[in-house]
Structure formats: structure tokens, C-alpha cells
């Protein structure tokens, strides 16, 4: 791993008219890292990604990728990155092989290299049997893999993925991440945006974007421990009344429904017994908060502070 960050974003602003989509974003991504930019829809994830790839101009701020300024040296940046848009544009009337060849030509990959790389990629993604199939006739997961192959043909140093597994079934998603791990193992850097927190858990480092501001930035493990609140899981038969009781309790800061249980957040040092006392009939257990808990609690706090 190289000491110098491969992506540096400093003081990034982007306005659409009066709306500020990205506000004073500062971020560094190290070489060989999987970085996840997480946030609700409309938080500014795609905008940040597009600016970093040189597809969109920033209103203010500096972005450097692989040692080049994206504004001044966009050509050099494009040679070193792969970008996979949220809705990746594949040509439906071209076959898998033709799509690959097209992108290979655009990236100036010579024939010899293409002929060795294409089978490798097809092998890795297990797409070899479908090389003559029209892209329009592929399943969602296969389209995703083809799109990924197209962006990998020129062996980019950094791979930018915008919500790559949106609308892809869980099995294909797992396959997709397995490929990403392999690529990172080979030295690639991956910058991914996602709204799925289970995906965020797979990243080395995660940034939480909320209303254009980066409000959290750390590894998933440390983020989970960074919450200045203790998290309790409350289970039982009468979730509704438990929730009411917890909401009214003075020492509980926040209550969230989490599937068939309730997550209650109380200041650090609060004992299980104290929570049990509020809901005597329930099963209470102290748990390590999930990323989702951390994000929701952080967003909630951010909103309370703004209000």
C-alpha cells in the first residue's frame, strides 16, 4: 500500500441553482482501499462521485485522482479510472463480446492485450457462456457483471461504482462483491456509493453523507464503537407498548423499530437492568449497534441540531 492517498478531495462544493448538493467535502482515499460513500437518496453521493470522475464540474474545491487534477487533466484521470454509472449504459443490441470490444477500443487496449484480458474477465465473472448473447437479454446481475467488465478492461487504478448492486438479487450481489475483493487484492482501489448498509459493512472505510455534508468517516468497526450511546435490543410480545414506554422514559434518548425487535439508545454506562425496569415484560439485551443504528442515530442527532 502506498502512503500517498490516491483520491484527495478538498473543500468540495457543488450547487445546483440555489440548492447545495455538496457542502465543503474533505476526503482522502488510500490506495488499495474499498471506500464506501453511504447516505440516503439525495444526499449528494452521485454528485460527489461524478465530480471525482471528472464527469461534472465542481462549484468550488479541488479533486485529485491518481496524482492528477480532475479539472485540469481530465484526460489523464479518465485513463486511470473506471466508472460504472448507477444505470450503466450497455448497448442492448450489441452482444456481450461486442460491448467488451467497443470499450476496449475506446480505452485503446491493443488486440493482444484484449485477447488475453477478455477471457480472464469472462472467466472471473463466469460470463463465458454468454459472450454471444445480446446485452438486452441478460439478467440484471449479468448486466452488472458485463458493465463491470467493461470498466475493468483498461486495468484502471481506481474503480468508481455508483450504487452498483441496485436492483440485483442477493446471490448476484455476493458474487459481485467477491469480484471486487479479488480486484482489491490485485491492487485496485474501489470507491463505491451505496444506500445498502450491509454493503457498507463490506467496505474498509465508510463516509456518511447527509444533505451534502460528510458527517461520519471511519471504518465500520470503529464507527460502531464510536456511538456515544449504548444500544439495547428489546424483544417481546407487545412491541407497541414497549415502544411507548421507552419513548416516555427519561434515560432513553432514541427508540427505533428494527424488524421484530426494538433498538433503544441510552447514554453510555446505562445498565441493562435500568432498561429492563422500563419494560418489565420484555427481553432486554445489550448489543453492539449495527451501522444502520449508528447512521440513523447520527442523522437524527444532526437533524435535531439543525432544528
Amino acid at each position: 500500500m502506498n502512503a500517498a492517498p490516491i483520491i484527495t478531495i478538498r473543500g468540495l462544493h457543488r450547487k445546483f441553482g440555489d440548492i447545495e448538493a455538496v457542502h465543503d467535502l474533505n476526503l482522502e482515499v488510500a490506495r488499495g482501499e474499498i471506500f464506501g460513500l453511504v447516505g440516503p437518496d439525495g444526499a449528494g453521493k452521485t454528485t460527489t462521485l461524478r465530480i471525482t470522475c471528472g464527469l461534472m464540474h465542481a462549484t468550488a474545491g479541488e479533486v485529485r485522482v491518481a496524482g492528477h487534477d480532475v479539472r485540469a487533466e481530465v484526460g489523464a484521470v479518465k485513463d486511470r479510472i473506471g466508472y460504472m454509472a448507477q444505470k450503466f449504459g450497455l448497448y442492448g443490441d450489441l452482444t456481450v463480446g461486442e460491448n467488451l470490444r467497443f470499450y476496449a477500443d475506446l480505452f485503446g487496449i491493443d488486440k493482444q492485450q484484449r485477447d488475453t484480458l477478455t477471457p480472464q474477465l469472462l472467466e472471473m465473472t463466469r460470463m463465458s457462456p454468454f459472450v454471444d448473447r445480446h446485452a438486452a437479454k441478460l439478467s440484471g446481475g449479468m448486466k452488472q457483471k458485463l458493465a463491470l467488465m467493461c470498466t475493468l478492461l483498461h486495468r484502471p487504478e481506481v474503480l468508481f461504482l455508483d450504487e452498483p448492486t441496485n436492483g440485483v438479487d442477493p446471490v448476484s450481489r455476493r458474487d459481485f462483491w467477491a469480484i471486487l475483493y479479488q480486484l482489491v487484492h490485485e491492487g485496485m482501489t474501489v470507491f463505491v456509493t451505496t444506500a445498502y448498509l450491509d454493503e457498507a459493512e463490506r467496505c474498509d472505510r465508510v463516509g456518511l453523507l447527509h444533505k451534502g455534508r460528510l458527517i461520519l468517516l471511519d471504518s465500520p468497526a470503529r464507527l460502531k464503537n464510536s456511538l456515544p450511546l449504548a444500544c439495547f435490543e428489546v424483544r417481546g410480545d407487545d412491541l407497541r407498548s414497549y415502544r411507548e414506554a421507552l419513548r416516555r422514559a427519561a434515560n432513553v434518548e432514541d427508540v427505533e423499530l428494527a424488524g421484530s425487535s426494538i433498538h433503544a439508545f441510552a447514554p453510555q454506562g446505562t445498565e441493562e437492568a435500568a432498561i429492563q425496569a422500563i419494560v418489565p415484560g420484555a427481553r432486554v439485551r445489550r448489543i453492539l449497534p449495527s451501522l444502520e443504528d449508528v447512521f440513523i442515530a447520527t442523522v437524527r442527532r444532526e437533524e435535531n441540531r439543525a432544528a
Binding site: 479518465k78 444505470k87 449504459g89
Partner: peptide
């Protein structure tokens, strides 16, 4: 058509 299908965004990210 390239804009509507999203392929334009992809083309812009290539060196073309």
C-alpha cells in the same frame, strides 16, 4: 438515445 439509455454518461468517462 445515448443520453436516454445512460450510455452517454459512460462514454464521457472514457477517453473518447
Amino acid at each position: 438515445r445515448e443520453w436516454e439509455n445512460g450510455t452517454m454518461e459512460e462514454l464521457l468517462s472514457t477517453p473518447v
